[in-house]
Design a binder for these strands. Structure first.
Lengths: 218, 218
DNA sequence: TTATAAATTTAGACAGGTCTAAATTTATAA
DNA sequence: TTATAAATTTAGACCTGTCTAAATTTATAA
């Protein structure tokens, strides 16, 4: 078994290598883990002994297949629990991270798979991040809700997180349909609503709630 | 904050002092925690420093009010999670203990209270043990083991004193499950085994040992 | 290309929780 | 009441994950 701490290191390395970088530096891990570089080196040696990472002194690290499998399983748990917290316990989407950080370390695979089923095998967590399935596979085209785009950020609409007819009809009417490109012009401070522009030059505001439920590919 | 281990010690002391004993011995804690007496002594010193237990060398321990509050909150979490696992995720009642042992250490109070609400504020867990409410109060309505009933006495099965899977599976098989009514037909003189009858008219004998471990509300 | 800066690793220490072996205290039985 | 057994504690050690300070390697810029 791997300790709570080892799991967090693997997860950190996984997230750091997702954002491009082939090889992850000791310092970047230290920053994410909120610890010192020396401590990271100690742990890297341990993870290398366990064959969970590829590691050569001074050269940075990457996950082995086994390490990656573990990391993905933790990400799966984290995102499933976040989905549970928001959908079933009515947490706000910005309140769930810390709790999920604890829940992701619960070991029972049976629990995770039953939870997955209970939740209806969701594909995305409340932040729009894809949830790996039981085999660790997930949609890799990173979809983000419009609400997470920065000003001047844009993308192509790829999906929605809300399937109520009224909502879909609204999208239809506003031409916010799959395949269309949108760009964020402004995020209104006081209610977090978003001013967007279509490729038709049409510009208008949508509520934060709507922005959260439209997923775009960047 | 208290460590995972400290919480488990407090919980162990709580359970040991529930079963009568005012003061709990080092050895009994060691047995429950599956560790050595010397390790227990080390931890007792620590818990005493934190004012969570009353402790005098060689004299056994008891929980302070603060220690008891923590122990009860862990019991609350444990039983709520067990209820969740059985009611929502379709676990069998004899499969939930180990998973709940992990889940009980998740710290968020917000999570526990929302979970409680989501589950409909249940009063008993799947083993019939009472679930403390948000203020740590719970039904202490006296449950009696079947072994203490007189002939012709009866009651509704409300819980068990033994949580070994083999035992729980035996109960399952014999339909000796929570909510079922039983009546004592005879107490066999020579081995103190008990002949009981279910509301289904099924009549059979159970050993004194089994009778001691099934709790009924009269 | 070499001096200096930045990144990384090593050496040695510490705190938490555990252990074994030995010492001490309490309980028990003749 | 005293010898012996049982329970408990102490002493000293180990392992994990962390740290600081110093040493080493790699990167960079003149």
């Amino acid at each position: 078994m791997n300790s709570y701490t080892e799991e967090n290191y693997l997860k950190a390395i996984y997230h750091l290598s997702i954002n491009g970088n082939e090889s992850v530096s000791t310092n970047s891990i230290a920053a994410v883990m909120n610890t010192k570089a020396a401590s990271v080196t100690d742990m890297l040696k341990k993870l290398f002994e366990k064959k969970l990472i590829n590691y050569a002194r001074y050269q940075g690290v990457s996950l082995t297949d086994e390490g990656k499998t573990i990391a993905v399983s933790i990400v799966r748990k984290h995102r499933l629990w976040e989905f549970f917290l928001v959908e079933k316990l009515q947490f706000k989407w910005d309140e769930v991270h810390d709790v999920a950080e604890e829940l992701e370390h619960i070991t029972s695979a049976e629990l995770v798979d039953r939870l997955d089923k209970f939740l209806g095998f969701p594909k995305y967590d409340p932040h729009g991040d894809p949830i790996p399935d039981v085999n660790g596979r997930f949609n890799t085209n990173e979809l983000k809700p419009i609400s997470e785009l920065l000003v001047n950020g844009g993308g192509i609409i790829m999906g929605v997180r809300e399937h109520m007819p009224q909502f879909l009809q609204y999208l239809e009417k506003m031409k916010l349909t799959i395949g269309n490109h949108i760009k964020v012009i402004e995020v209104v401070e006081y209610d977090q609503s978003v001013i967007i522009q279509l490729n038709t030059e049409d510009t208008f505001g949508i509520s934060r709630d709507v922005a959260k439920n439209i997923l775009v590919r960047i």
